[in-house]
């Protein structure tokens, strides 16, 4: 599904160059539920952006669903993003002058789906996420959790194979965060690969695999038994909360 091979990425800022990713080798299978952790500056967001074809890499290779993602035109990248990837952002990034339904329907607009049909589909997704009654509300009339659910519905509507979430719970309180994580887990249960970036251990503990980045390299990958321990130590605090 996702195959990263020795990925390097540097940001050039004036004269100095910042080497963010220093050779990432990663293999994520279809249906995985992965969190990427790391202290700030460890390169986790950069990695996610490369995975989402929002950014390009300098060296190495990246295969997504068998396609080599390299030197693509903006147009082709946009098309692949639309087909394969759904994005969920920390600050929701809804379009402020469109209501919930229109926001959800937007990816289909870029696919050329007629207005009536795409609004109908958007309503289905909103219903799935329990937001049917909020379809005609503008983003500024909704709570953070509701906005994030709208954003998730928008990410899902184009039936992506991967959901990429950049700190999806970063702007939410813990109760709402768990709701959002529950939704993401349900999505994962439907067979969609979910990759989230987070720095919260309790959130990461809810996923099935944790990739810890440190200084541009993969520090450790936690899964199976180790994951159990990880989960025990972090989920414990939540259950009492």
């Amino acid at each position: 599904m996702i195959r990263l091979n020795n990925i390097h990425k540097s940001y050039v800022m004036g004269n100095s160059s910042l080497h963010v990713l220093k050779g990432i080798d990663l293999h994520i299978e279809q249906g995985d539920f992965v969190s990427i952790m790391g202290s700030s500056g460890s390169g986790k967001s950069t990695l996610l952006n490369i995975l989402g074809m929002l950014d390009n890499y300098d060296n190495g290779s990246y295969h997504l669903s068998g396609n080599l993602i390299a030197n693509m035109s903006e147009k082709r990248a946009a098309k692949l993003r639309n087909e394969l990837v759904g994005f969920v952002f920390q600050s929701f990034n809804l379009i402020s002058f469109k209501n919930a339904m229109e926001n959800v329907a937007l990816p289909l607009y870029y696919k050329g789906v007629p207005r009536k049909k795409r609004n109908l589909i958007a309503m289905e997704y909103l219903e799935k996420l329990g937001l049917k009654d909020w379809a005609n509300h503008m983003p500024n009339e909704m709570s953070g959790g509701q906005k994030q659910r709208v954003a998730i519905a928008r990410a899902l509507i184009s039936k992506p194979k991967i959901i990429l979430a950049d700190e999806p719970t970063g702007a939410l309180d813990s109760a709402t965060s768990y709701e959002v994580m529950d939704i993401l887990r349900e999505i994962n249960d439907d067979g969609i690969t979910v990759i989230i970036v987070t720095h919260e251990h309790d959130i990461a503990a809810m996923t099935r695999q944790i990739i810890r980045l440190n200084d541009g390299r993969i520090h450790e990958i936690i899964r199976n038994g180790e994951l159990k321990n990880f989960q025990k130590s972090y989920i414990h605090g939540l259950e009492t909360a």
Binding site: K75, K79, Y110, R154
Partner: peptide, 16 residues
């Protein structure tokens, strides 16, 4: 800029 970025993230081509 941000709005345009979002649109492009969810599939708007530069042409659009």
């Amino acid at each position: 800029t941000q709005e345009i970025g979002i649109q492009r993230a969810i599939g708007a081509t530069p042409g659009t």
